[in-house]
């Protein structure tokens, strides 16, 4: 049974929440744009996977989460990490390989983590973090802490074994975890439909685990926010896990190396019209929020990203002394006496 939510139940999301959702989406959008500009300047080393176009999912869930809930996300995780309140300058500096990066240069773009804000890590092996999120939920369950783990992953992850192992375990143990599949239509360079046995890679498989099939518009922040409220609430009140498939689209390629030429132009055009940030701006304006207020949000976001960029660029390169630190719990890297 598919539960399709097609129209935004506009009345149900209050104005402060809407402003918060928009502010967060604009910040995430501006951060990713800036990251892209910085790697055109050759300042971002290594690879980088941007989530331009997928902001509504990060924002919608983050706004619905409790401060001590856990987020697990993928190598396309800048947005999910920042949405929990992690330092933007710390994230930017990490992309630039600076000592003031949130991981002091030891993780990089694909591993942003800020445990103090519940951002429990960005995982770069597809599917690996689903069982780990289940483990955090198990811990919350036995500690009776009331915390919920939310795990974000791409459509490609639904074809790897860890997805199925994690879903089955989470249901059998009735864990407080929400699995959110961000179906951006492509697993790296390949259309997901051409390598998947079912039309909706997550939603169509929910029944295999006795779960409700939830398929939602991932480019609508209100819908995501409400889905988040429902699924997180279910987890927190002992109702067990949920599996959500949110339909969305990557505005860019898989990584910095990918110009995404394999995507039909008409498809790209159509999805750009459904840009979650543009759409939400229009919704705010038609719901009585003034242009001035919206502009202020956008200016503040731009200023925040500018300040974070400046702070990141002022940082020194990562320190070589860090190499042999923090392999072990005593802070060292010693493997012999």
């Amino acid at each position: 049974m598919s539960t399709r939510v097609e129209k935004p139940p506009a009345a149900e999301v209050d104005r402060p929440t809407r402003l918060r959702l928009y502010q967060l989406m604009v910040e995430l959008r501006d951060f990713e744009q800036r990251a892209y500009e910085l790697f055109l300047e050759n300042l971002v080393r290594g690879t980088s996977h941007l989530a331009l176009g997928q902001e509504a999912i990060s924002a919608g869930y983050a706004v619905a989460m409790r401060a001590d809930d856990y987020t697990f996300c993928t190598y396309r995780g800048h947005g999910h990490t920042l949405a929990r309140g992690a330092s933007m300058a710390g994230a930017m500096a990490e992309l630039l390989g600076r000592g003031n990066g949130m991981l002091h240069g030891k993780g990089g773009s694909m591993h942003l983590t800020d445990v103090r804000h519940g951002a429990m890590g960005s995982y770069a092996i597809v599917g690996a973090h689903l069982p780990i999120a289940a483990g955090a939920a198990w811990s919350a369950q036995v500690r009776k802490s009331g915390q919920v783990a939310v795990c974000f992953f791409g459509d490609g992850a639904t074809n790897i074994g860890a997805f199925h192992e994690a879903l089955n375990l989470a249901v059998v143990w009735k864990l407080p975890v929400v699995f959110v599949c961000e179906n951006n239509q492509y697993m790296e360079y390949t259309p997901i439909a051409s390598v998947t046995a079912v039309e909706h890679p997550a939603a169509d498989r929910a029944s295999a685990y006795g779960l409700e099939s939830i398929l939602v518009d991932g480019n609508d922040a209100d819908i995501i926010y409400q889905t988040a409220r429902q699924t997180i609430d279910r987890a927190r009140t002992g109702g067990g896990p949920s599996l959500v498939e949110a339909l969305t689209y990557r505005h860019g390629g898989h990584s910095r190396a990918d110009p995404a030429k394999y995507r039909p132009e008409a498809e790209v055009r159509e999805w750009l019209q459904r840009d979650p940030v543009k759409r939400y701006r229009e919704r705010l304006l038609t719901n009585g929020i003034s242009e001035t207020q919206v502009n202020e949000i956008e200016t503040r976001a731009q200023q925040k990203v500018d300040a974070a960029t400046e702070e990141a660029r002022r940082g020194d390169p990562a320190r070589v002394e860090e190499i042999e630190r923090q392999v072990w719990g005593d802070g060292s890297a010693a493997w012999r006496n």
């Binding site: 856990y70 697990f72 445990v115 429990m120 690996a128 973090h129 689903l130 069982p131 780990i132 999120a133 289940a134 483990g135 955090a136 939920a137 198990w138 811990s139 919350a140 036995v142 500690r143 915390q147 783990a149 074994g161 860890a162 192992e165 994690a166 089955n168 375990l169 059998v172 143990w173």
Partner: peptide
Amino acid sequence: PDRVRDTPISEQAIIGAAMGAAMTGLRP
């Protein structure tokens, strides 16, 4: 059965669950 739990034949889930639990306060 809460502290000594049988799992399915799912080695990735076993180690993943232990990891997620360890990073959030248990000693599995």
